[in-house]
Design a protein around this nucleic acid. Sequence first.
DNA 1: TTGAAAGCGCTAACAG
DNA 2: CTGTTAGCGCTTTCAA
Lengths: 350, 350
Amino acid sequence: MPLMPDRAAPSPAPPVLKRATLVDVAAHAGTSTISVSRALRRPAMVSEGLRARIMQAVQELGYVSDTAASALASRRSGVIGVLIPSVADAVFGDLLDGLYDAVAATPYTLQLGNTRSDAATEERLIRIHLGQRPAGLILAGIDQSSAARAALERAECPVVQIMDLTENPVDMQVGFSHHAAARTATGHLLARGYHAPAFIGARIDPRTERRLAGYREAMAEAGLAHRARVVTTPKPSSVGMGSTLFRRLRQYAPDADAVLCNDDDLALGALFAAQRAGLSVGREIGICGFNDLDVMAAAFPALTSVRTPRREIGAAALSMIATRLWDGDVAPPIRDLGFKLMVRASTERV
Amino acid sequence: MPLMPDRAAPSPAPPVLKRATLVDVAAHAGTSTISVSRALRRPAMVSEGLRARIMQAVQELGYVSDTAASALASRRSGVIGVLIPSVADAVFGDLLDGLYDAVAATPYTLQLGNTRSDAATEERLIRIHLGQRPAGLILAGIDQSSAARAALERAECPVVQIMDLTENPVDMQVGFSHHAAARTATGHLLARGYHAPAFIGARIDPRTERRLAGYREAMAEAGLAHRARVVTTPKPSSVGMGSTLFRRLRQYAPDADAVLCNDDDLALGALFAAQRAGLSVGREIGICGFNDLDVMAAAFPALTSVRTPRREIGAAALSMIATRLWDGDVAPPIRDLGFKLMVRASTERV
DNA sequence: TTGAAAGCGCTAACAG
DNA sequence: CTGTTAGCGCTTTCAA
């Protein structure tokens, strides 16, 4: 860091390193600060000639608007908050990718919050974000605490709940039905001739619960409720955990001939564990994942999975907020982006 | 959005929904705004009694400090900027995890920027972040454009370059040597008796280049420079791409008996491709990854990889900034967190 | 289309 | 330890 003399000698030289402000730009362009402000935010409100002079001054002085001052004066911040349960999970990575992609074309900035799947943390983060007068708020999931929900309902900005669907969203929502997806996947296993598909899941959260319910419903509909087998753990999901749960399942329910995995990591772990056990994946044991990360199609044998529109959800959420902010109305404010079962060798039975 | 009457009728009722400000809290607690401000930021500067009254008023009014006003008045923002090349990559996911974990214990907030491995984007983001008077800036990589570097050197906040090491950091740095890591991994393959280890890589960036150089150096040292085989693609890395590159390698250099993969995704893809080709992984073909994601140990056969301290780097970077901000000096301002070769079945030869 | 004046809510600096 | 006084740099009226 550069050292400064105790007291700078008064000198005609410009104060070193002081950032240019609107006042500086206005002086440089021979106009008022408000015109500069307008030229920058709504170019159409300023005559062409003035605008040109202003833009040049901005260039020459390397002016960068002060976000804080702007937010304070306008009571608006340009920050869109995003609250997700995990930053390390590939599923949310894809979501973020879609989000960052979409935001690049707007004047907004994303501010990420990591809830760690903890309701209290989420509540705290919601408060903090709301305190910053965000331009919008994007929340993963629909399971906010009631206090959080109350705060959200008082929010003066658009709010989008994503990744899931609920009857009564706070404001807007875009996602897909985890229940239906699991139900479809289970139906697929049954249709392929697996008689006793099981379910394995790690770190059970509300989203997972809905998938599990979908699995159970499909089993019940097939008159196989008594054959439902579920193995879960509160620990975080990982490929290694997938292997562990698979082994546990084989021990607890040796009759299970297929397994619906709560996510792709678990499915991959199940695949490796099955191979270690010398099982023929697809024929002796069916494996189906959830999310359809790129690895699923590349695996050997290729793994069946439910493709979820994570990137698309991110893009849609951002566009919904931008639309609301610019045009006012968003239609429809509730979007089901669906899912798609990607059938591959791991559930081929034959 | 709630509708507002054109002109609110003057009424004795409290203005609906108006957020409490310092003035409100001060009035409620019977003191001045500055004392409230102090009680909140430096509790020690206020007597116990006053503090208690203030805290209660804060509670009762649900006061939340206005970030923008605070930043404007103090010329400090509490925001630590983090610029990474990808939000979807598991490697950076782990980094973020470490970062978010560490920041939770501080009063700071992280603001993520996605450079998409693009120097111009990175430069732009650096400017934007710097314009917000961040409390600190964390940059992945050491390959900023010269304009970006110039801006960074003028920055008035701590700057940490992470994930890599360079002779002349902008300010502080924490990472490990990609060159040395690849050199070590290649050395391992040679020591295990593989005579012609190749290298595959996707989306070659400067970090990758250094790994490749490490590979080449190890080959040269072993007098096998003439046996070096490299297959790369500008496309993004993925498991599927790993399979593709592996097949391409087999075609182009059928004599290669091992492959050092630029990342774990590629290694996993190589594993699957090798299995598809009926090769015995470990014996007929050695496979080594880079980063050691959880999947590597769980795979069948388990895959050798270079473990990189991503979470630790995140935690260290944040602590370096916090220390600089609170205590002034950070020692040492340059940290090599090293790496560790995790040897597993995929390079067992035997 | 342009400008002048008046804050936004907070904190730095200086007094008591 | 506590309070007063001035802004921070921008945008919002309102007026010309």
